[in-house]
Design a protein around this nucleic acid. Structure first.
Lengths: 336, 336
DNA sequence: CTTCGTCATTGAATCGTTTTAACAGTCGCA
DNA sequence: TGCGACTGTTAAAACGATTCAATGACGAAG
C-alpha cells in the first residue's frame, strides 16, 4: 500500500528485482515480452522509484545546488531559469537557495548541499569562502562561480565584465553631455557593485570636468534606491547631479520613483538622466522606461551548468573563466 | 578521501558505527568522553552525513515540496518565505517548483516530489488534479492546498476569502462614487481570479447604476496589464471606466504604467481610480502608490506548513479549511 | 558471594535500488 | 554431435546511516 518497492513489482511480474531494474534503466537488455509484463506490474501497483535509494547507490544526487544573493532580484531568477532549463535537458534539477547576502545562510546552504551530495554547486558568493569551496571540490563536488570571477582563477566562473559595463554606462552619460554623475549602489563589499563603480571611475578619468559622486547605500534594493533618490530631490537644484548611474535596476527604479513623486519639479531625463544595470523586465516597463546595461542572464545560467557538467564528467579539466560582455540598452530615461 | 563514512569515523575513534550514530542523534545515550573522542574524529576527517542514506532509512525526506503558479509574482515568494521559515524551525527545508500555470510542469514537479518521498506537499493547483493529489495522500504524503480551497473539502487548505476581497474592492470604489468599473484579470480558469470577480459582481449588484465591465486577459502579469491599460487609454474619454479593479498587483501596476505614459491626459486617481490585489511591496512603491487588497502572505505560508506538519504527525486528523479575511489598504491610486 | 539493575557499547539487520558475475538456454556452424 | 557465441535472467553484493536486541562491565543490594 503506502510502500511499493521493486521487490513487490518483481513478485507481481514473476521476475527478479534485477530485471525490474533493467526494465527501467536498460530496457534494451530485456526481452520485449518481459518489459511489457513488468511495465504492467509497475502501473498496476503504482510503483514509484525511491530516489534516496538510487542516490545512495550511485553516490551523488541528480540535483544541482545554486546559491544566489537575492531571489527578489529578477536578474537572479532569470539566471536560475537559464540554469534550470539547461539542467533539465541533462536530467538534473536545480534547487535554489537564497543567501540574502548573509554569511550564515550562505554557509547553511553549502552544508545542506554537501549532505545531499549534490551533483555540483553554482554560487554567487557573498563572504570570502574560497577555502570552503576548495574543500568542496576536494570532496569531488564541482563548483562554478556565477556572476563573479575567482580571485585566483582556481574555480571556473561565468561572469560579465562589470568594469566594462560600468564604463559603458558612464561613457553613455558623458556622451549625452552630463557632467555631474552620481553612482548609487552598495555595499561596496559586493564585487559586482565595486566593479561597476570602478569601470565608471576609469571612464570618468577620461572626461575632464566630469565629476563622479558616490552615494553608498546599504543594499542594492528598491527601498534603498528610493531613499537615495529622495535625498537627491531634497538638495538645492544646483547641487543635484544631472545623471544617476545605479548599481542595478532595482536601485534605478527606486531612484526614479523618488524623483517622479516630486511631480514635475525634477524631470527625467531632462534634469536627471538615469541608467541602471541588469535590464530586468521591470526596467522597460517602468513609467519612464529605464536605460540599462544588459547582461545575458539566461545564457549565464545555462553556460554555468554546461561547465559544471563538463567538470563533473571529467574532474581533471582545468578551471575556465568565461566572461560575457555587457551591452548598452538606451531607453527614455536617458533620452533614448 | 572523497568519501568518508561513519565506518571511517568509527575506526578512527575506536568505537562501533552504532556509537558514532548515537553521538550525532542521541548524544545523551553516550558517555561524555566518548562523545568528545568521536566528535574529534568527525572533525579531523571532515565527515559529512550522507543524506540519501538517512532518508532511505527513515522512509521520508526532510523536504517539503511546494508548487506555485508563478515565482515571478512577489506574492508567492512571500508565501514561500513564510513557509520556509516555519519549516526551518522544524528542521525541514522547502524546495520550490514553479508550475507557470502549465499542467505538464505541475505534473512533473509532483512526480519529482513523490520520488523524493517528500515530507509533504504544498500546492496552489492549476489543473484539476484532485485525483492525483488523492493518490499522493493515499501513499502517505500529506497535501495542503495554498491560496485555494478544496472543492469537496477533502484536503486541508489555507486560503483567503477572495470573494469577500473582491467585494471589499468594489465597495471601496463605489463609496468613492465610481460608477463605471472595469475588472482587469484572467484567465478565468484560475480560481482566485474568478472568485475576485465574483465578489465584485455580487457587490456591484447592490449598487444600482453601477456597471461592471470585464476585461479578460491571458495572464495576470505586468505586460498584460499594460496592454489592457493602453486599450483603455485608446478609447474616447467618455467610454473609459472611472475605476479599475485589477486581479492582482502586477496587473494594476501594468495598468497604471499605461495610463501614466499618456502624460497628464488621464489622471490617477482623478479620472480613473485603480485598486489591485495582494499588496506586494512594489504596490506601495509605485509612482502613484497603489491601493490594494492585502493578504497575509507570510502567514498563509506558515500556517500551511503548520497544518502539514500536524497531518504528517497524525494522518488521522481530518482536513481543515483555514480561511483568512483580506483587508483593504487605501493609497493614492484611489485617493487615499 | 551471588544476583539484579544500570549504563555504555556493540554487531547485525534494515531501508530500496543498481550493478555485476554467474548461470541456463538457444542458435549457428563446423 | 559438440563447441563457442549470444541472450535473457538471476542472485547476491554493494551504497551509508540508523536502530534494536544483545552483551559486557560494574556497583549496589541482599
Amino acid at each position: 500500500m503506502a510502500v511499493t518497492s521493486v521487490r513487490d513489482v518483481a513478485r507481481r511480474a514473476g521476475v527478479s528485482v534485477g530485471t525490474v531494474s533493467n526494465v527501467m534503466n536498460h530496457p534494451d537488455k530485456v526481452a520485449a515480452a518481459t518489459v511489457i509484463r513488468v511495465q504492467a506490474a509497475i502501473d498496476e501497483l503504482g510503483f514509484i522509484r525511491n530516489d534516496a535509494a538510487r542516490q545512495l547507490r550511485d553516490g551523488r544526487s541528480k540535483t544541482i545546488g545554486m546559491v544566489v544573493l537575492d531571489v527578489r532580484n529578477p536578474f537572479f531568477t532569470d539566471v536560475a531559469r537559464g540554469a534550470e532549463d539547461k539542467a533539465a535537458a541533462a536530467g538534473l534539477i536545480v534547487t535554489l537557495g537564497n543567501s540574502d547576502e548573509n554569511t550564515e545562510r550562505e554557509s547553511t546552504y553549502l552544508d545542506l548541499f554537501e549532505q545531499q551530495r549534490v551533483h555540483g554547486i553554482l554560487i554567487s558568493p557573498y563572504a570570502d569562502i574560497n577555502d570552503r569551496l576548495l574543500a568542496l571540490r576536494r570532496r569531488g563536488i564541482p563548483v562554478v562561480l556565477v556572476d563573479r570571477t575567482s580571485t585566483d582563477a582556481s574555480f571556473s566562473s561565468v561572469s560579465v565584465d562589470d568594469i566594462s559595463g560600468g564604463a559603458l554606462a558612464l561613457e553613455h552619460l558623458a556622451a549625452l553631455g552630463r557632467r555631474r554623475v552620481a553612482f548609487v549602489g552598495g555595499p561596496m563589499e559586493i564585487r559586482q557593485v565595486a566593479d561597476r563603480l570602478e569601470g565608471a571611475r576609469r571612464a570618468a578619468a577620461g572626461h575632464p570636468g566630469l565629476t563622479l559622486e558616490i552615494i553608498d547605500i546599504a543594499a542594492s534594493t528598491v527601498i534603498e534606491g528610493r531613499a537615495a533618490g529622495a535625498a537627491i530631490v531634497a538638495r538645492r537644484p544646483e547641487d543635484r547631479p544631472d545623471a544617476v548611474f545605479a548599481a542595478n535596476d532595482l536601485v534605478s527604479m527606486g531612484v526614479l520613483q523618488a524623483l517622479m513623486m516630486q511631480g514635475a519639479e525634477v524631470r527625467v531625463p531632462d534634469d536627471i538622466a538615469i541608467i541602471g544595470y541588469d535590464d530586468i523586465d521591470f526596467a522597460s516597463a517602468a513609467v519612464v522606461p529605464l536605460s540599462s546595461i544588459r547582461q545575458p542572464s539566461a545564457l549565464i545560467g545555462a553556460t554555468a551548468v554546461q561547465i559544471l557538467l563538463e567538470e563533473a564528467a571529467d574532474p581533471s579539466i582545468g578551471a575556465r573563466q568565461i566572461e560575457f560582455q555587457p551591452t548598452l540598452v538606451v531607453r527614455a530615461s536617458t533620452g533614448g
